[in-house]
Design a binder for these strands. Sequence first.
DNA 1: GACCTGCTGCGGTTTG
Length: 739
Amino acid sequence: MMNSAFDQLDTRVQKWVYKQGWDTLRDIQEMSIAPILAGKTDLVISASTAAGKTEAAFLPACSAIANNKDGFGILYISPLKALINDQYRRLEGLCDDLDMTVTPWHGDSLQSRKKKAKQDPEGILLITPESLESMLMRESGWLVSAFENLKYIIIDEYHAFIGSERGCQLQAVMHRLECLLERQTSPIPRIALSATLGDMDGVLDYLRPSKSIPCELIVGKQSQSSLKMQVRGYEEKEPDTSEVSDEEISDIKTAEQQIALDLYDVLRGDSHLVFANSRQRTENFAVMLSDLCEKNHVPNEFFPHHGSLSKELRTDLESRLQKETLPTTAVCTMTLELGIDIGKVKSVAQVTAPHSVASLRQRIGRSGRRDTPAILRMYITEKELNANSCVGDKLRLELLQSLAMIRLLLMEKWYEPSDTHLYHFSTLLHQILAVIAQWGGVRPDQLWALLCKEGFFGAVTVEHFKQLVSQMGGLNLIIQIGSGELVLGELGEQLVGHYSFYAVFKTPEEYRVVVEGKTLGTLPIDSVILPDSYIVFGGRRWIVLDVDVEKKVILVSPAKGGKPPKFGGGGMSVNDRIRKEMFDIYSSGDYKISSNGAKLDFLDSAGKGLFHEGLSFYKQKDLKNNHLIQQGSSVHVIPWMGDRIVNTLYAMLAQSGFDVDCSAGVIEVEKAQLSTVQKALKSFTSMSRTTNADLAKHVRNKIIEKYDHLLPEELLNLSYGERAFDVRSTVKWLYEMGL
DNA sequence: GACCTGCTGCGGTTTG
């Protein structure tokens, strides 16, 4: 371990490292020491889970503040309360040895601990962006003294912030803090810890848009651990009700039931994760697998885990996984994708195509124990074909997308870049209110300089800003007083005064699901649940006793039967690169992965059958050369491009009066002739002066972010248009297609 | 055809 970087650490930190029994530091830990101790640059540390990012940041940062006396030396910001609690436990030992205080500070942390830290701020503060926002708004005077010796800001799970509303708020809050502490000329170094990211340059720009100090990048070596993988195909049969009796029908298994049987056989007896993509499917698989345990008279080891389940149910399952004493399979959504400490599991199963390549990678990373390979099993269902099958089914698009994502991950090492060019006017409105609340009154030019000029609402022009401020005046959110300063209006006071103000993202209204006084979790208010109906929730079956609309409570009692409720949710977006890869696979007729000159096959025989069905339809229609085909009375447009371009084509066709439908990247134009649609598409090439906002004018529901309903129509069209459409790329594509 | 995250101050009850 003797090397110069390690020698620069505080001796007590060195001793702590020896005490852990580590013979060497990991590569990222070693590389981080010099730049962090120098403290002249920002830093992005990018590596996969369990590569030691936390220590890479904290070993040198703690060394640098080891002799600080007054005030917090390190401000650590995390997107999750659970992660703050995990990190507190991880840092306790090291900080004990340094005689340094660590204070976890979020909505659920102890009042006593917060009080102590307020009287004697010292060492490390672990906090959420929302709690930091509340400190800025309510205690900015105290902040100035508590942070007077602040040396570092460490941001954990940085990829979770990039491009989102919370990311916007985080940047604004960090910048406001730097201004409050008058540190513009000696900026506080920001250290961002992140999973492997798609677009590194974008990430470096995003961390400090003003670029007042440079940003360095440290990337961990890709882990060499091997991966065992199989994709399995299933066909959903249409039951032929004419020739079989009712009894026989009940014997026919749906594809999901068959998948549950296969999962039961292969997973029972060890610990695994099953990612099922939606809360409804998660509940369904958890209960099917539990039923199989009951039927076979063995103890249940399959449990659901998702964001609508109560904290208690979730932590029980997390700690059961962590203990590693009982075989445990969690059927889960992205709640177990990253962050929380559950140790490693033997294998990961993915039911239906993953939402993104980035998330597929995170999921695989959860599997594989010491010296054993990671194992991924993917279960894909396609519908049995008949005379009425749609083009998407005939092309076997879900299977094809899964194959494309696996190839992009393993062969190209490609992940989706985050979208950092959105407007986020909703968050800007929030920040205007927050800054006014912090200072009491602010001049419009000061607001503009603080929030927009420095760059994190960079796409916002002075004109946009004026429009927004005047709209806010009209709505009585703010008032301009004689001195020209803006202060809170009546509605503004109301919003800012309620505790729900601090979070900048939108949350739907929910019912609580309660059994005998114990809360199992929540359901969205628009899911229709009636008394006496049967539901599946938390992996068990219930009958609904009562629905209290006033108190928003659903009372349940154990029962047999029932189905998982719908949880609702928005749409998803597939990137151009994935659709192009899908096109390439069918064009070459080969989905296999090349490795050292060999072709690796990873598809089971049923999956191969489905693949060849899709491929033969592709060839029959010559889709390599035709992006438009006539099927009966409908014309199908198949661009093999991402959802932004598909949405744009869809909107253009709809506004030209066509009857259109869209699914999985295929647009169906009903009751139309090929030549008519072709002519229409050709005419769109002259639409390059149409803006994304123009297309958004015709969209009915554009309310996506928390304060969208308070925005002027023009700004709402702008932000929705940029999110959903891409006219320029669409016109370019139309030209390239020779249209 | 989707998923996830967070916030206050105070009043009540339980525990040491």
